[in-house]
Design a protein around this nucleic acid. Sequence first.
DNA 1: TCCTCTGCCTAACAAATGTTAGGCAGAGGA
DNA 2: TCCTCTGCCTAACATTTGTTAGGCAGAGGA
Lengths: 194, 194
Amino acid sequence: MPDASAPSQTDMRRRILDAAALLLAENGYKATTLRNVAEAAGLKAGSIYYHFPSKDHITVEVLNEGVQQVSKAVLDAVDAAEGASGKAVLRAALEAHLKALAEHSSYTRASIRCFSMVPEEIRRQTVYVRRAFDSQWLSILQKIQTSGDIHKDVNLKDLHLIILGTLNWTLEWQGAGEEERLQLADTLAKLIMR
Amino acid sequence: MPDASAPSQTDMRRRILDAAALLLAENGYKATTLRNVAEAAGLKAGSIYYHFPSKDHITVEVLNEGVQQVSKAVLDAVDAAEGASGKAVLRAALEAHLKALAEHSSYTRASIRCFSMVPEEIRRQTVYVRRAFDSQWLSILQKIQTSGDIHKDVNLKDLHLIILGTLNWTLEWQGAGEEERLQLADTLAKLIMR
DNA sequence: TCCTCTGCCTAACAAATGTTAGGCAGAGGA
DNA sequence: TCCTCTGCCTAACATTTGTTAGGCAGAGGA
C-alpha cells in the first residue's frame, strides 16, 4: 500500500510524478505514454501500477500540483507584501506567478497546457483547484482596486484575463531568463497601474 | 491527382480539413484520429488518403491556414484604418484579431493550441507562417509607438507578448459572446494607450 | 460496347497504447 | 529456517493507431 505520509520510502513515486510532469508539459496528455514515463523514472511500465492505479490518476495529481504550486507562490508573495502599496502587491504577485511558472516549470506547464485537452473525467477532477486559483487572483485585484491603485473604471474580469493570458503565454517562450521575466512583470505592472 | 486549383471538385477535401480543424482544436494532435476525422467528414478512414498523403499533411495545412486567417483579418483591419489615430488602429487590430479567433474558431484554435504539442516535423513546416504573423503584429506596434500614441518607454516585445497572450488566452473562454470581446478589446486598448 | 479515370470502400497490416497477471529477489520479523 | 511483505520485472492482453493494397461502382469519352 503506497502511503505518501510514510516517512521514508523509495522516492520512486515522486520520480514517476516528476517524469510524468515533464512529459505532459512537453508533449501533452495523449502523447505522454506510460512507457516513456517509466523510462524517464527508471523503471518498467508495468511497475508504475504498483504506485498508481492508472495513467489518469497520475495526470490528475500532476495537474493539481502544478496549479497549487503557483497558487501558493502567489499567495505567499501577497502575504509577504501586506501593508505595502497596491502597486507593490501587484508587482509581487506578478513576479511570484512568473517565477513559479519558470521554476516548477514541469508541473505548472503541464497543468496549463494540458488542461483543455485532457479527457473530461480528468478535467472534472482538476477544475476545482483551478477555480480556486482564479478566485484568488481576482480577490487580489479587487483589493488593489478598492484601495484605489487600479482605476475604478477598469473591468477586473478583463484585467484578470489579461494577466492570466500574458503570464501563461510566457510558457511558449522557450528558455527566457530571469531578466526577461522581471522586465515583463515591470511592463505589465506599469500598464495596469496608472 | 487532387488539385486544389481545379474549378469544381467534390468539396470533400475541404470537408476533411474542416473536420480535422475542429477535432484538432478540441482534442489536440495526438487525440485526433483519422477515423474520427473521416466520420465527421462523411467518409471512411482509408479514403482520406485519396485526398491527402498523410495525417501530418492535413495537420500542417490546418495549422497554417489558421494563422493566415487571423493574419489576414488583422492586416485588413489595419489597412482599413489607415490614416486614423494610433489608438483607432490598435483598437481595429485587436478587434479583428479577436473576431477572427472567434469566427474561424476551428482553424485558429487548432493552430494556437496544437502548435506547441505537435511533432517537430510539423512544427518546422508551420513555424514560418507563425513568425511572419509575429513580425506583422510587432511592426503594427512599432508604427503606433513612433507615431507617439504608445509611450516611448514601453517595451514593445513585452507589449507584443501581452497582446498575443491575452487574445489567445480568450480561447480558454468557452463561449464568450461578441459583447465580451469588444469589452476586452476596449479594456486592453485603454491600458496600452495613455 | 469498351476503356479509363475518379472517388470511395473493405480488409488488413504492424506498431504502439493502457493495463493486468504472475513471478521473483531481497529485507526483515518470528 | 520459514514466512510475509515490498518493490519491481516479464510477458502478455485487447484495443487503437496511421497506413496500404486491392477492389468496385459509375461517369464519360472513343
